[in-house]
């Protein structure tokens, strides 16, 4: 199965093996026809309506503003509905360095996102700590705190790269299963078991 989006040839994508492997895994148990078509409809909706959370800590956030502006115009893909409340957003673009003091706040924001939720680690700071890796106050990659779906390198990444990253995310959503089957959700549970959630009382 070739997973791609409008006006983007399959060969133009990178990391096709990853998606193919994901599809293989999901197909391993076979698919019910009716359930499968429901899945398709839902995934069509999800993958075409990806609302970001307005969350930025530093330079990458400014490139995200540029992404919304007229030249790059993320509204073309329907991503411009940036929600300030995490309850209403679909994914979190962790744009910028995450430091020790911010880490619990970011985790809390992630917990507040409504399922299904996704994370893009934007820029080298979010991926690994980037130029600040050796600092005493910087988290060495946000995957210590939240599960990451797409890693987007750059310092900061160009808006074109951001478009590509969100399109990759959209492609990942396309092969998900909502009704039964192997689902990404289990992965989150594994992650949460390893990184226990604190209680908010």
């Amino acid at each position: 199965m070739e997973v791609t989006t409008k006006s983007m040839p399959y060969e133009a994508w990178k990391d096709n093996e990853y998606i193919e492997q994901l599809v293989e895994e999901l197909k391993a148990n076979g698919t019910n026809v009716i359930v499968g078509s429901f899945d398709k409809l839902i995934n069509w909706g999800r993958s075409n309506s990806i609302w970001p959370l307005t969350f930025a800590t530093s330079c990458c956030g400014i490139e995200f503003v540029s992404l919304g502006a007229a030249r790059y115009d993320m509204a073309r893909f329907g991503w411009e509905v940036a929600r300030s409340s995490p309850r209403q957003a679909d994914f979190m673009m962790v744009a910028g360095t995450i430091v020790h003091r911010m880490a619990p706040v970011m985790r809390r924001l992630y917990d507040q996102l409504a399922e299904p939720k996704y994370v893009i680690a934007t820029g080298s700071c979010a991926i690994s700590g980037g130029p600040f890796r050796n600092s005493y106050h910087v988290v060495k990659g946000i995957d210590e705190i939240v599960p990451v779906d797409v890693y987007l390198p750059g310092c900061p990444p160009r808006p074109e790269a951001m478009i590509y990253a969100i399109m990759q995310l959209s492609r990942k959503m396309k092969v998900e299963k909502f009704f039964g089957g192997v689902n990404r959700k289990e992965k989150i549970e594994e992650f949460l078991a390893a990184h226990p959630e604190e209680s908010y009382d």
């Binding site: 800590t57 430091v99 003091r101 600040f132 600092s135 005493y136 106050h137 910087v138």
Partner: peptide, 9 residues
């Protein structure tokens, strides 16, 4: 919340 310790680095 974005203190990266540049002076120490």
């Amino acid at each position: 919340y974005i203190h990266r310790g540049i002076e120490k680095l």
